[in-house]
Amino acid sequence: MSAAELTVVGFRLPFRHFSDPGQLKAALLGHIAEAQVAPQSLVVFPGLLAMGLLAPDLSMVPTGLAERLRQGAGDLEATYLTVGEEIARERHIYLVPGSVWLPAPIGYTHRACLFDPDGRLLGWQEQTHAYLWEAELIASAEVAVWQVGPLRVGVLLGADPWVPEVSRVLTLQGADLLLAPLAPIAPYASARAMAGLWQEVQQNQTYGLETGLTGPFFDLGVDGKLAVLAPCELTPGETGFFGEAGYVVSQKARSAVLEPADLHALRERYPLLRHLNPDLYRRHWQERGEGRP
């Protein structure tokens, strides 16, 4: 891999419980080894995978979840960080070790972190838009973009891939690659998936990586999918998918080599964002009395 490209590796994995942090770390390292991940690659595990550290009899139904997390999450945040940092450093990879629900003083948050190949924490991203049923989730009002090798990366959690404002903000802040470590409640139909990150990648001309948690998740069911995405023009058959067309529901891992030069050439050739109409949008926000000029 040259410095001008980035290999990304995503996973679609069944949820499981872990008896201790060592077991979680061993499981993640096993998946990385099996996928033959090279140093300096970016690896993204499914959303909420690390929740397997919590007691199996904990209920994840939305009502009262914040209180149950306060009582049952223990040192989940510290463990999640430690495991992520160690794996990133030991394997010399960029890493998003899935995401976690963490108790907050009021409600709870949904967070994911990103490590660099030296095990340094590049930053956290919190979910910014909640589903109605996530009544106790405290949504963040900020998104961030980080440099990962030759690409700038943003993270989308929970409902965020279905809120186009989030991907637009990330893209206008410079993101070239949108990551979505998800654990969508079952059923998660292909049509709904296509209306999510795939669309954001197309309308913002970025790369994308969606990873998914599957199977029973405590007392819920999740049905994640897996895909490495790009604007149609950059993929075989112009499908928007690296590999066969459509979201992966049968494989565990998928990887692709992403080339920033290809993306930038496409943006020059077909400059979608150059035809944004900001004066129109500005007037709309001003007339509605929302937003900040």
């Binding site: 910014t128 838009h129 909640a130 589903y131 109605l132 949504a139 963040s140 009002a141 900020e142 409902a159 279905w162 809120v163 404002e165 989030v166 637009r168 903000v169 206008l172 802040q173 964002l273 944004l276 900001p278 004066d279 949008y281 500005r282 709309h284 926000w285 001003q286 929302e290 937003g291 900040r292 000029p293």
Partner: peptide, 25 residues
């Protein structure tokens, strides 16, 4: 009336329409 995703007014205030600033005509 039963939109599945809650709006986030603080997010909107943070970014819109200023995020388009570099694109003003």
């Amino acid at each position: 009336k039963e939109e599945a995703i809650r709006a986030n007014a603080a997010f909107v205030r943070n970014y819109f329409p200023s995020i388009y600033r570099g694109f003003w005509r």
